[in-house]
Design a protein around this nucleic acid. Structure first.
Lengths: 402, 402
DNA sequence: AAAACTTTGTTTAGCCACTAGACTAACAAT
DNA sequence: ATTGTTAGTCTAGTGGCTAAACAAAGTTTT
């Protein structure tokens, strides 16, 4: 809600904004007293009292017992009621579906994962419904119930939540948002998996204190989610962050996207597996080679496999250098499946960056691996719904008097 | 001013926001009546009347004669008073200094350019003072006078306006902002030249109607300015857009930045000149080869030179592809000196993009060359001051009653 | 223990910018 | 001239804010 936007300003907006400020203060600094809130956000005591009463009515916060006196009357401590409602976050992967039920603080209450291979859309949809149904039924009773469902998908999602393309799932022009809205009558948010992961890390993970975060989702392919000025940046149509197809080698090998020398040909899980297969490294299980097989081998000290990881780390660093030069972020977070191999990637990656990134870009910059491990996307998806719910809750109620 | 920010909301903010809305409406739709403004921005007629009176008092707008009746009383038309004050914009190049005096709509009233070679900082500072002095003295009388000075420099500028590094000028840790503030007692803004150019194109050039613009400043080096969500994005410390040093060729030729395979080694003016020299193409003037020499040769139909341009266009396309994949912009604008050679660059550039950019990225995407030609940066720098002035003007006055 | 001081939280009066709608002004159509 | 329409001002009322008084509930001083 920028001052430049075509939105008129009136008393409702003022109250909405201040209420939001008060709630955020309580969420981030609980337990806290009314007086402290007033002082810290710069509002009048009376105003804060009134807003706090609204929030109490909405059951978004609650009063705990009195706190410690600092020489006068003991303050009444306010706490965020993180159990006022629950959010469902889903992460649809190429061969898994992960669902979580979280409270309003992003604490995972229940998780449910199913794995599969080569399922049709209809079959995945069935799994999706099952998962959501299960999570919904298992949710503890709460004033606001399930406040929304967020879904992260490995594909291109436009600004209306329509999935234009999910190559690895073979989905095309699929309006999953509509499907879920019709079935569940709840606010639904569909997002690209990397965007969801970025948001998850910003809200609950390694990026909590940063305003400029680039989340690199390195899995079978590479996707990137951008948190700029504290908010997800989606570009003109919602397609930002397709950095897996950034050229890092002009006239390099051809990618399935038609371009040449794409980053994900060098630094993704798929790149690692392809390189390993070329070196005649096979899965000891006899099945198709998987990342976990390589990790086992690396753990056993296999120098060829370790070299492969190190090579991938170096290439990751090349792309991350480009990202740093583009965005001047505070933080780069590497997530998704490749993050599990951080052990063997870190050194070559950080070497590449510290040797080659422009010196002034390296101040105040941290590069790290996901804190939420495999939950980034699911948690981020859940967080979208939470954000939306809290934002709507700030709005004026049409007062229904008894 | 986001609702999430740590800013309290009160009546002043409401008025400021609405006043800004009204002024913007008048600027972009003048001549317009009070009634039309009220209807279009969604405010009450009375409110608009009151805000308009404030703006009239500030002389930011004026009333022209009555407009055409549409069946009732004839409306009083309101116009933006673009001559209420003047802004100075300076573009410091490697071997030139361009200053413009603009009105509040970015119309250039006076321009002054000096060219030089290898001047020390002190000598350039003298030229800078001369230029500013001349523009100030030549400014027509106006209610608000000179409202600020903006300077675009080819280097790294941090968020405080300090020039950390301008390699081609051999400047380092220079606080030009302080120097100018002390001398002129005016609001001073120092910005990177590509950022200024991007802002110039957004406000007055090819990007007027877009919210997501990437401006590629292709000169001796390559810098990039980012307009995201309608605003300049500067990153965590102000160093975003250093895309000239994006790797497009892993382990390619070494750049002066220490990295390898940087974009500007392939697609900048310097790249073109270096390639030409290797092919034994010399300036007919006998002096050092310049871009203008190559343009003359290309104009004469020299196939070798044309091929060089086409090659550069292709490489420009490679980097622009990466930009498109990163940002999903509405518009990519190529500016600075290479824009003058658009004639020979366009085809290979657009071929590269249309063949290799992801298909969904290409909807609603326009790629074009600067509309403001060599004035992008100077105008953008001037625009920063205008923006700042108008924003301050919206704020409440401490009423000084006679 | 009483008095004095501190701090918390509520209440009250007043302010300011907004809205709705009455009003005045100025025009066109009949 | 009368009627209808549009533009702009004025007035009363509303809502959310602030400042300051007040009430409540502590601690510290005497």
């Amino acid at each position: 809600m920028n001052i430049g936007e075509n939105k008129t300003w009136n008393h409702h907006v003022v109250k909405e904004g201040n209420k939001s400020l008060v709630l955020k203060k309580i969420i981030n600094h609980s337990p806290i007293s009314r007086a402290a809130v007033a002082q810290e956000v710069g509002l009048n005591k009376g105003t804060v009292s009134s807003l706090v009463n609204d929030l109490l009515d909405d059951q978004l916060i609650y009063e705990s017992g009195p706190g410690k006196s600092s020489g006068g009357r003991r303050p009444v401590m306010l706490l965020f009621n993180e159990k006022a409602g629950y959010s469902i976050g889903i992460d649809i992967g190429v061969n898994y579906l992960l669902g979580v039920l979280t409270d309003l603080n992003g604490n995972i209450c229940i998780e449910k994962e199913v794995t599969f291979k080569n399922l049709s859309y209809e079959e995945i949809e069935k799994q999706l419904f099952n998962t959501i149904d299960h999570l919904t039924e298992s949710a503890p009773p709460s004033p606001h119930g399930i406040i929304g469902i967020g879904v992260g998908v490995p594909g291109i999602v436009d600004n209306n939540g329509e999935i234009l393309l999910a190559p690895n799932l073979k989905w095309k022009n699929l309006n999953l948002k509509l499907v879920l809205e019709n079935r569940y009558q709840l606010p639904i948010i569909i997002e690209n998996e990397a965007n969801a992961g970025a948001y998850g890390e910003k809200r609950f993970g390694a990026g909590k204190d940063s305003e400029h975060i680039i989340y690199v989702s390195a899995g079978i392919g590479i996707g990137v989610g951008l948190i700029l000025n504290g908010a997800l940046y989606k570009g003109s149509n919602g397609f930002s962050g397709e950095l897996g197809h950034m050229t890092i080698q002009v006239n390099g090998p051809t990618c399935r996207c038609g371009n040449k020398g794409c980053w994900e040909l060098f630094a993704s899980e798929q790149a690692l597996l392809t390189a390993a297969e070329k070196m005649n490294i096979f899965s000891h299980s006899g099945k198709e080679l998987e990342l976990s097989d390589l990790m086992v081998l690396a753990e056993q000290g296999d120098p060829k496999v370790i070299a492969l990881f190190e090579q991938a780390g170096d290439y990751l660093g090349v792309g991350i250098n480009n990202i740093i030069n583009s965005f001047n972020p505070q933080q780069v977070i590497i997530g998704n499946r490749m993050a599990s191999s951080s052990k063997w990637l870190t050194k070559t990656l950080t070497d590449r960056v510290s040797n080659q990134a422009l010196w002034f870009q390296q101040n105040d910059l941290t590069i790290c691996f996901s804190e939420l491990s495999t939950f980034s996307s699911a948690l981020g998806a859940a967080a979208f719904s939470i954000e939306n719910f809290l934002s709507v809750s700030m709005q004026q109620k049409t007062s229904l008097k008894a």
